[in-house]
Write a protein that binds this DNA or RNA. Structure first.
Lengths: 337, 337
DNA sequence: TTGTAGGCGTTATCAC
DNA sequence: GTGATAACGCCTACAA
């Protein structure tokens, strides 16, 4: 059987070859109906582009940024970095949020395909196999930032040294004399959460301590998540004397829970956060936290994307930027009990 | 002689009517040579468009958001609101930052014109006369959010009740017994700053107090701006017992200055901020501030833009959303001195 | 009837 | 030559 070419598809779809080419390249001048038929045929035949890309499509001057959730000022720092690089490269940045909703992801992908985007950066959101295949057919490059799950080795991705961050935070607390140290991670499904908690466990084990099951919690990345988890921790028969929160927003919840229970930070409970968002120095007490270079992560992801777009080789498909413990006032020696 | 129509031109140029139409509307898919011929004929015949414009150019599916400075999480809330509306309307949102630089503004405008943007929302940034004219020629609508200067009456704009906010904040402090109340505004050139400070003055006057010159300062909207201004205020022979800061970020600077001088908030100095960003409840003490519905402002601006794009009439060219004083812990009665 | 948008084929061209 | 793509302009449908 001969290799499937555009001509094959065109014949079956009763259109001209250029029309198929247009669908493949996301041009807008194809009727939605026609496009659907052609896309189906392309999938059915498992069409593969020739490896050496043809005269490359220098059409739109866009790149896309998809952030799962724009509401947290977490994403802003990344956005800022991406915007800067896009601006320098003379590319327009299209921003969207998908709020963990599959329908929005599909919609975004659809709009991306019918536009002339050169590539996409996905933050804390992920695509399923079919969606990846669709992008691959179009040879639309994408880069993951803090992907949901471990990305396939051939997908470029950017992250922070979450494991090392979790380790450093916990080690710091151990060094202050704490032995009952709790962890509140973000959603358990997230790669970054798992790495941070793994770092936490590892630090405990390295000191001969054990992570008691009750002391590890998972909660959504916001104040109320932290509040709720910390409440339960404080209600334990043997409450922790220190808490490693997997994000600064979670840490604000821990503060609220401590305050509600009349616990003073750090005298009665030390707290360490993660992210180092810009308000942490002004919290009271100022939050000890693991700094994550979010803006730089955005810059790195955007530069990576540009390299892929320009057909340059990546030195590495995975970049992890260093985290650093920032010690402020919310962590202190364990109180003699 | 019959009136000159596109058909006349088309016949003479040996092209179809749609092709002439495309030249007239600046579409790109006409060869330069053909376009030149047609443009010459159009000029020679003195072609006039009919007065009632036909279905106008529904070109790209974009709208643009230009934020002067993305770095502050101030803009994030607005961005979120705009994104939501754009998504609902099936439009892609292009985001850029211009950092108060004229060159970047020019570049952005250039890219906007060469793209297929349907319109733009400008946040805390402004266009000069020529730039406005350029947009008008293309009939590209735009909406201002918190414009730099008072917008011309025919330009749609969205803001908050800054005057009322400044008034409420100051009245609150007066009610607590303060008489030496300082204000730290943002940059003096900004409309929102002037309105907030005017509200402050007005409240003082309404209570028979006077705004001493030394007690009104202007500083850039960030921590260090507030720190610097507050330092100078505390160094006065008669320092203020309360400070109204024109933004929450400025207020964080006031906190730092107070701490550095050993002043307790609110016992020795009350502080009121402006914006109610998401971290203010976790500051210590929790910041009393004037809430500004930033997200809703983004929504309102985007909806306004859509109406203009669709040729609908606006009920009003100026929308001001209400501010509200949120009393927390950073404001308290004047200490007996 | 005039003008416009969308859709798609024709042609030229390019890389192999 | 062959596969794929960019450029261009006509046809059709439709809106005023």
């Amino acid at each position: 059987m001969p290799r499937c070419t555009l001509a094959t598809i065109a014949r079956e779809a009763n259109v001209s070859v250029p029309t198929v080419s247009k669908v493949l390249n996301g041009h807008s001048d194809v009727a939605a109906h026609t496009r659907a038929i052609i896309e189906r045929l392309l999938t059915e035949h498992g069409y593969q582009r020739p490896r050496s890309p043809r005269r490359s499509n220098r059409r739109g001057e866009f790149i896309d940024l998809v952030i799962n959730d724009l509401d947290s000022n977490w994403g802003l720092a990344i956005l800022t970095g991406v915007e800067q690089v896009a601006e320098e490269a003379g590319l327009t940045l299209a921003v969207s949020a998908v709020h963990n909703r599959a329908s929005l992801t599909r919609r975004w992908l659809q709009s991306l395909l019918s536009r002339a985007s050169q590539g996409a950066i996905l933050v804390l959101s992920d695509l399923d196999e079919a969606q990846r295949a669709e992008l691959a057919r179009r040879t639309l490059p994408f880069v993951l930032v803090d992907g949901v799950s471990a990305p396939p080795p051939d997908v470029p991705s950017v992250g922070a040294t979450n494991f090392a961050g979790g380790f450093a935070a916990t080690e710091h607390l151990i060094g202050l004399g704490h032995t009952r140290i709790a962890a509140i991670g973000g959603p358990e499904s997230l790669l970054c959460t798992r790495a941070r908690v793994a770092g936490y466990r590892s630090a405990l084990e390295a000191s001969g301590l054990r992570a008691h099951r009750d002391l590890v919690r998972y909660a959504p990345f916001h104040h109320d998540g932290g509040l709720d988890a910390a409440r339960r921790l404080f209600a334990l028969a043997e409450p922790p004397t220190a808490i490693f929160a997997g994000s600064d927003h979670l840490a604000t919840g821990v503060y609220s829970a401590a305050r509600a229970r009349g616990l003073r930070i750090p005298e009665q409970c030390s707290v360490v956060g993660f992210d180092d968002l810009n308000f942490t120095p002004w919290m009271a007490p100022a939050l000890t936290t693991v700094r994550q270079p979010l803006r730089e992560m955005g810059v790195a992801a955007a530069r990576m994307l540009l390299r892929v777009i320009n057909g340059e080789r990546l030195d590495s498909h995975r970049i992890e930027l260093a985290t650093a413990l920032v010690i402020r006032e919310s962590s202190g020696p364990r109180a003699p009990h």
